[in-house]
Design a protein around this nucleic acid. Structure first.
Lengths: 127, 127
DNA sequence: CTCAATGGTATCTTTTGGATACTGGACACT
DNA sequence: AGTGTCCAGTATCCAAAAGATACCATTGAG
């Protein structure tokens, strides 16, 4: 009923759960999507994503590198140049992430409308 | 280049960004996937997901309800019965989420292997 | 009068994320 | 020599979110 594989996100302690939850880190999807078009340097990534602080971006990138989703290449020039790019595995996530992204962009009006109704239902305080 | 729609997750302050980031809340995907098979009561959801505390589950559910992704139905019996089920909009997310889930379950071995290599590269301390 | 079932809150601690300032190495300019 | 710039991050400190655990309200059964 669940799936016949060896791993299942609904099993507590299964590594797949932690992996899926990491994909839902606040910045992970944006980082991966930002790299969809090719390698980017640290500062370019930062600019492209916007609003992310260097500390958090660094730790997001480290985790993704550690998990094999992206590659970090240091070029010893001056000043030092660091490029980040998706690995093969990382690229295999782009499809699903693109879908989530499109869904989010398409459903903005609906979600905003739902919020308005919800709030109106919650506070029947005026007239 | 980015997309011709009105909303874009790469634009800072665009509601679609916040919506996408919410989809990546720690428990949101699990909640939505858990409801894929039909309505569940609060305690059943808790059991099915496992490891989520009531406080966090409540707030996750409230947000999803507020955004119109799921419906909360209270039946006044004793003790009270509360059912949660996906809305039409919520169901439209199941495809992408299923994809993310499958990816996570399929790539467990690869990710674990990558972590091992990464750690070995980082600490060349023993023999 | 007590107990159990359900769907949560309340409170406190720990973890994660954010703001902001700073480091370090190599050149380039003055 | 001294100062400034570029880049890729750290360091430090503070705020927001998640987790552990205990508790509450309703009410029907015993």
């Amino acid at each position: 009923m669940e799936s016949d594989r060896d791993f299942n996100v609904f099993v507590q302690g299964c590594p797949s759960r932690e992996i899926m939850q990491r994909l839902g880190d606040k910045w992970t999807p944006l980082v991966l999507l930002a790299l969809a078009g090719g390698p980017l340097r640290f500062s370019a990534l930062r600019q492209r994503i916007g609003a992310v602080t260097p500390k958090v971006l660094t730790s997001t990138l480290r985790t993704l590198e550690r998990d094999g989703l992206l590659l970090r290449t240091v070029t010893a020039q001056v000043p030092v140049r660091v490029d980040y790019e998706l690995s093969e595995v990382g690229r295999s996530l782009l499809g699903p992430l693109e879908a989530i992204r499109l869904w989010s962009e398409e459903h903005v009006p609906g979600v905003l409308r739902a919020r308005g109704e919800f709030d109106r239902r919650s506070e029947p305080s005026e007239s």
